[in-house]
Amino acid sequence: MIDVPPGFNWEVMWQQTLHMQDNAYVDAVFILVIFDLVTGSLKAWMPQSKRHVNSTKGLNGLIKHSLILVMIAFLFPLVAAMGLETEANVILVWFVYQYGVSIMENLDVLGVPFPPFLRERFEKMAERSDKLIKKDDHDEN
C-alpha cells in the first residue's frame, strides 16, 4: 500500500477530480490552450512572423501544452484535496492570463485590430519577447 500523508483521503481526491469539470478556470485553461495552438499554428504561416513553420518548434509546443494540461489534470485534484483549492485556482488564473497574452500576440500577427492602448502594451511585450527570442536563437547555435 502507498504511504499517504496523515489526513489525506483518496475519496476526497477522487471527488475533487470529478469536481474539476465544474471549475470554470479549468475549462478556460483547456479552451485557451487549444485556441493558442490554433492561432500559433496560423501565425507561423504568416510572412511577418518572427518564427515560421518549423516541425521541431511545433512539436516542442505540442509537448509543452500537453504537459501543462496533464499537470493541471493530475495536480489540481491533489492540491484541492489538501484543502488548497483557492491556491490551485490562483495558479489556473495565472495560466489563463499567460495563454490570453499569447493568443492576443498571435492575433496581432494575424492582423486582428486592437485598440491603441492595448497595442502600446503589446509593443512593450513584443520588445521583451524579441530579446528572449534572440537569446534563445543565439543559445541554439
Rank of each mutant, 00 (worst) to 15 (best):
M1F: 07
I2T: 07
V4H: 04
G7C: 07
N9V: 14
W10H: 09
V12R: 04
M13T: 09
W14V: 13
Q15L: 15
Q16M: 15
T17W: 15
A24S: 13
V26W: 12
I34S: 05
F35C: 06
F35K: 03
V38Y: 07
L42E: 07
W45M: 09
Q48H: 03
S49R: 00
R51T: 09
R51A: 10
H52A: 10
V53Q: 10
T56Q: 08
T56F: 13
G58E: 04
L59D: 12
L59H: 13
N60Q: 13
G61E: 12
S66L: 14
F74M: 06
L75V: 04
P77W: 11
L78D: 13
A80L: 12
A80P: 15
L84G: 06
L84H: 15
A88D: 14
N89F: 01
V90W: 15
I91S: 09
Y97D: 02
M104Y: 02
E105T: 04
N106G: 00
F114P: 01
F117I: 04
F117L: 04
L118D: 01
E120Y: 05
R121C: 03
F122N: 06
F122H: 10
F122R: 13
A126E: 14
R128Y: 00
L132P: 01
D137K: 08
H138V: 02
H138A: 12
E140M: 11
N141M: 10
